[in-house]
Design a protein around this nucleic acid. Structure first.
Lengths: 107, 107
DNA sequence: CAATTATACTTAGAAGTTCTATGCAAACAA
DNA sequence: TTGTTTGCATAGAACTTCTAAGTATAATTG
């Protein structure tokens, strides 16, 4: 369903500022107009992978309420990966625009 | 690399008219400006899957030169899957536009 | 005409990705 | 105090894509 979009999506959300798993899921839900409702089992393994690759970093923090949260932050490395992913997405988007425009024109 | 884009891409190419594996690979290469160079091992299994699901149908034909080719054709079923995929893509595209615009504006 | 290249399809298995399902635990609300 | 929300984690299933190899024929090149 998401395909190659997961990673740019997560990195983009983190580019808005550091965040934690639960909040990222909600942010994605809000920004997609309730279309994307990720489960934890989807997000966390990806976050772990991104951290392992050095795109993001994590740190435990305790909120005033006493809750412990693991905050993720975009690293420079991840910044450039995101830039490449944006490029990639836009390039795919152009291909589709071309294909779909052609079909409209050929009516 | 391709993620969820493979299926709409193939279906879109077939919407241009029926085609066969080898040519589809070339069409994808051309339309992407040499960015996407699929291997047979990537395309054929997907074609088989799409046929099994009833989105496309295939038939062997022999060209004047004597070569045998397996032509694939988009079915009505596949037509509506493609429409749904287009919708899905555009919706993801909107999400990214929103995320990426915000970042430009917030400089 | 022999060797190479281009055309054309197939599949097994590896690798990678995402989802389902479940578990744990603490704070909060009823 | 019982249920809901918040919060993280992971195993295994399911699915997708890629690598690699095999088969076969037509066209081209030397």
């Amino acid at each position: 369903m998401m395909g190659a979009a997961s990673i740019p999506l997560i990195l983009s959300v983190l580019q808005e500022g550091e965040s934690y798993g639960y909040l990222i899921i909600q942010r994605i839900k809000v920004i997609s107009g309730n279309q994307l409702e990720w489960k934890e089992g989807t997000l966390y393994p990806i976050l772990h992978k991104l951290e392992k690759k050095g795109y993001i970093t994590s740190s435990w923090k305790t909120s005033e309420s006493g809750r412990k949260r693991k905050y993720y932050k975009l690293l420079e490395n991840g910044q450039s990966v995101l830039a490449a992913e944006q490029q990639n997405w836009q390039s795919l988007n152009q291909i589709f625009s071309k294909l779909w425009l052609t079909q409209i024109n050929s009516i």
